[in-house]
């Protein structure tokens, strides 16, 4: 993943962006238990495969946005704004067989 797509600025070099962790983590109500609060703060899905993340175009327009990426291959799939509906994950075969220049190294990610 050398590039990422900002919904405003388009395809940019990865070094312009900062990752801000798993997206759509929902804050529990103030009267939640300590377990629920700990879960909210620290527990993550951390999946090997597709995931949704928050990114900020830090050295660019400054926008916060969401991106779908495959953590097993590092191939970024799509970006969307918080105001937009969540796109579905693509099916794995579609991504693996795409003509992305880094598919050749996919198997390196175990």
């Amino acid at each position: 993943m050398l590039h990422l797509t900002c919904p405003h600025c388009g395809d940019r070099e990865l070094s312009e962006f900062a990752c801000r962790g798993e997206a759509h983590v929902v804050r529990p109500q103030p009267d939640c238990t300590e377990e629920e609060w700990g879960e909210y703060l620290f527990y993550r899905d951390n999946p090997k495969g597709f995931l949704r993340e928050q990114w900020i175009h830090a050295a660019g327009c400054g926008a916060w946005f969401y991106a779908i990426r495959n953590s097993a291959t590092d191939i970024a799939v799509t970006s969307y704004l918080p105001t937009e509906p969540k796109p579905d994950f693509p099916d794995a075969t579609h991504v693996a067989s795409s003509s992305h220049p880094y598919t050749a190294t996919v198997s390196l990610g175990e």
Partner: peptide, 13 residues
């Protein structure tokens, strides 16, 4: 690296 990944490469920058 600052993002979750299981691709055993590490980013270029």
């Amino acid at each position: 690296d600052h993002y979750v990944s299981y691709a055993q490469r590490g980013s270029f920058n």
